[in-house]
Simulated assay, not measured.
Amino acid sequence: MSLIDISVPLSEDLPAFPGDPAIRLERAGVAANPFHLTRLSLGSHAGTHIDAPAHLLGEGATVDAIPLEWLIGPCRVVDLRGRKGAIAAGELKPLPLAGVRRLLLRTDNSELWLRPGFCEDYVGLAPDAANYLVELGIRLVGIDYLSIEPAGETSTVHRTLLGAEVVILEGLNLAGTPAGDYELLCLPLKLIRVDGAPCRAVLRPLA
């Protein structure tokens, strides 16, 4: 079985979105003697993670309410490298997306994981592109940095997607992943009444 791990490794060196808690991994020490234990401290949107509707919408669904069927199944990876700034609807409309329910956007963002610290010049979605994905019936959309919304923008993109119950999968690493069709397996931590959760995301080629 060939699997492609598209998750980023959680470590104290991994950047966090500005304002989010930093990742802290601490040995539990003598209290754990003689077993090795680690105390984890991180935000619900650390590394590769999903945004549930509750991330922005007060009455929105939390992580534990998202059906696993939305997170596992056929998906399409599209190659949008070379784009700068926000991806507009006009750049998505020529792509073969009819019938696609899970969409992963490979951009130049995947190269940003090689740079230390948070990078504000990442590529995100423009509001009209978010509206277009909702019109298509997309159930899950993923992107290869810590936010699907360009830095400094308002919450319009998140509000559009999450308001339509589209799961947002952020913090992917799609470097080396060719465009094409795959099976996505994305399992977030089963956190109760929480707005998002880190997850392990992998692709299995369908061909």
Rank of each mutant, 00 (worst) to 15 (best):
A46F: 04
L125H: 10
E69V: 12
A54Y: 05
A32V: 00
V30T: 14
T156N: 09
R101H: 15
E183T: 12
T48E: 06
R204T: 06
P18I: 06
N109S: 05
S110T: 14
P198T: 04
D51L: 13
V157I: 02
D128E: 14
V202P: 00
N109E: 05
F35Q: 11
L112M: 08
H36T: 13
G29A: 15
G171Y: 01
V157P: 00
R115L: 15
V78F: 01
L3F: 14
R83F: 12
Y182E: 06
E111T: 05
A22T: 07
D128P: 07
L71A: 03
A126E: 03
G196T: 00
P205I: 08
R115I: 08
I148E: 09
L56Q: 10
C199T: 14
A88K: 13
I50S: 00
L174D: 06
I138L: 04
C199A: 15
T62A: 12
D181W: 01
V141A: 00
L114M: 11
R83S: 11
T38F: 10
L206Q: 09
I66W: 05
H49C: 11
L40E: 11
V100T: 11
L161R: 03
I87R: 11
G82L: 00
L25W: 01
A88T: 08
A16F: 04
G73K: 03
Y122L: 07
T177F: 01
T156W: 02
N33F: 15
E135T: 10
R27A: 14
A207E: 08
G47T: 09
D13G: 03
T154K: 12
F35W: 10
E69D: 15
P188H: 03
I138N: 01
R83V: 14
S155C: 10
D121M: 08
D5W: 09
I6S: 00
T177N: 07
L174F: 08
V77Q: 05
P205E: 06
T48S: 13
L146S: 06
A89C: 14
